[in-house]
Design a protein around this nucleic acid. Structure first.
Lengths: 192, 192
DNA sequence: ACCTCAAACGGAATCGCCTCCGTTTACCCG
DNA sequence: CGGGTAAACGGAGGCGATTCCGTTTGAGGT
């Protein structure tokens, strides 16, 4: 009755888990380059497994893309605690934004397939959106607690702003400048 | 100045036109059976042409489906004058409804691909809808002029009603009874 | 009637998707 | 520490899509 997935997932054999991870890893890499459409066989080979193995783990191309997508989101969100440990919140926030740009860039290569997933009834977004919101919320919260970031910021707004930057900017440099701009707006009054 | 397509279409060689027609014909037939997904090669063979010929005329599967769809609509609309010549308007209307049911049945087999066409930006409907409206309008007009059908009927409503019947009924017999019912509603007062 | 040539034809060849099944291997148990 | 077993592996094979190019043919000009 869970709403997200199965609590009864069997422990998966060691080699199986290894291969699955390997596949997602390669898939992220492969899908990140836009324009190139990679064959599943190529991904399997790059991951050092047979095509059959790929298909057992991901019965359809969509399943693989979705896994790759989720994996990227997870990496992004999991990075937050580490960033907060090693730097003051406002610096962590800025660093996280940079990662976000990378993440969105990767997503572009998957866009077509993600569209297909949506068209066929799936919804890869609602879950991941929640996770992202939480991640930003943690950063904002830490900054507010430290007094360096404004406390009245809606994480969703930050997300939207950063998304906008990645979608509209051409190169990294420009994106960096815009992110700096956003950061300025996030700082608590008097901490400029 | 046409808004629908190219006024500069070259006259197409005789054999080419023959083959194209043949292909559409076979495609309609093939797509009309739901569930069966026909290979393009099968269609080509059934039409007695090589696979290359099929691809030259219809570069993608979608192009073929759309052509088949348009062809069906055209057949349906073109039938109206003939029906009106050989029968009083209310009888012609009823006969046309029967044909409409057949047409919708055929469309079901194409539904998936039509969906795909829409998803990729195409719109196979607006044009055909207009043609259908005109066709029904002619039938209604003739009936009104003859005094056997109500004059205040919106063709779009008739279309909607008949569509509803085809979508909800299981067998021909039931559909026939419902169409009779609709016909009754269309008759001019006192002509029951 | 014949010639010419662009248009049209057809199908072999290539490629990716996906299935199926014989082989290998991790893990548990005595 | 073997031994058994179910899980996992891997790739050959079947199938459809799509391209490419050598061959055929309709149609206009002489």
């Amino acid at each position: 009755m869970g709403h997200t997935d199965e609590a009864v997932t069997k422990p998966l054999r060691a080699d199986a888990r290894r291969n699955r991870e390997r596949l997602v890893e390669v898939a992220v890499e492969a899908f990140s380059t836009p324009g190139r459409d990679v064959s599943l066989e190529a991904i399997a080979k790059a991951a050092g497994v047979g095509i059959g193995t790929l298909y057992r783990h991901f019965p359809t191309r969509e399943a693989l893309v979705e896994a790759a997508y989720r994996s990227e989101v997870a990496r992004l969100c999991d990075a937050v605690p580490g960033l907060l440990e090693n730097a003051p919140p406002e610096v962590a926030m800025r660093a996280w934004m940079d990662r976000f740009v990378e993440y969105m860039t990767a997503k572009r290569g998957m866009l077509d397939t993600l569209r297909a997933i949506i068209a066929s009834g799936g919804d890869p977004f609602t879950e991941t959106k929640g996770r992202l919101r939480t991640a930003v919320g943690d950063l904002v919260g830490a900054g507010a607690a430290a007094g360096t970031l404004r406390a009245d910021v809606d994480p969703a707004d930050v997300l939207a702003a950063v998304s906008g930057v990645t979608l509209t900017t051409a190169d990294r440099e420009q994106a960096g400048r815009l992110l700096d701009l956003i950061m300025d707006g996030l700082r608590a009054p008097g901490t400029r």
